[in-house]
């Protein structure tokens, strides 16, 4: 579980996050949503520790990140997996080598055991051995996301962060990636935080949703409660499209 309390973050004079609090439980797909520029990426990067926060606390199962030294942060990060918006696979390594990378860096297993684990992770995300020796530039965007998920789960993380996991994907592939993240989250009881503004994902897998508006927490709940919200900013964001407006009408 990750618990954020009264988080404030500014860049020079410009404050971008105001007093954000939220509880991200394990085994659930926790989503941070908001319009572009609302501060959700800054919030996620602050939770991971890529940004130093001004005040507040970020507790990873009781361990407060802002109090940690760099060495401790690095140790904690070994329990973290992350899926980046652009996949962030290493160009110079093959699919297999990408998944092997965290294992070779931190695992004390033999090479054969590491390879077995990497193959297990790749097969878990439905990749066949035909793709194992290909380079990231030789595979599709959807496959790159799968490889990135496989790499993220290689070390059995306790926490999984996903930054816009569906960006650049067609709706069908996006849905498959969403389902995959949800399955992995539940299967391994991971604390997953997903940063997204894709409403299909939110409706599909959002067990806990934190809505950020202009750097402030404007609403929290789940994908069932979202239809009954009376927060104007949230309604403007969620029901921006005609399709979702109709869905709301039908629901209400």
């Amino acid at each position: 579980m990750i618990e954020v309390k009264n988080l404030n973050k500014s860049f020079d004079e410009n404050q971008v996050l105001f007093d954000i609090s939220g509880v991200f439980e394990n085994g659930k797909c926790n989503m941070i949503i908001g319009a572009s520029g609302s501060g959700k990426t800054v919030l996620m990067k602050s939770i991971i520790g890529l940004h130093r926060i001004d005040s507040g606390s970020i507790e990873y199962d009781g361990r407060n990140l802002p109090d940690m030294q760099m060495k401790e942060i690095r140790k904690l990060r070994r329990e973290v997996g992350m899926l980046f918006q652009g996949s962030a696979l290493f160009d110079s390594l093959t699919v297999m080598e990408n998944v092997m990378y965290p294992l070779e860096m931190f695992s004390s297993e033999t090479k054969a055991e590491m390879e077995k684990r990497a193959i297990f992770c790749l097969e878990r995300v439905d990749l066949t051995n035909k793709a194992f020796d290909l380079f990231p530039s030789e595979i599709s965007g959807g496959m790159q996301k799968r490889v990135a998920i496989a790499r993220a789960i290689a070390l059995n993380p306790k926490y999984l962060f996903c930054d816009e996991p569906n960006s650049g994907l067609d709706p069908k592939t996006a849905l498959i990636i969403d389902k995959l993240i949800q399955e992995i989250t539940q299967e391994y009881n991971i604390t997953t935080i997903i940063n997204s503004h894709d409403m299909n994902s939110v409706m599909e897998i959002g067990d806990y949703i934190l809505f950020i508006n202009k750097g402030r927490k404007a609403w929290e709940g789940n994908n069932k409660m979202i239809f009954n919200s009376d927060v104007q900013e949230l309604n403007d964001f969620v029901f921006a499209s005609e399709l979702f407006k109709k869905v709301k009408e039908v629901n209400s």
């Binding site: 890529l50 070994r78 997996g81 992350m82 962030a88 290493f90 160009d91 990378y101 931190f106 962060f161």
Partner: peptide, 18 residues
Amino acid sequence: GTMRITEQIDAIEIMGVN
């Protein structure tokens, strides 16, 4: 620089690697 802007360096950092 390309590794930085394509978030590959962030990915390395997130794994706890210097």
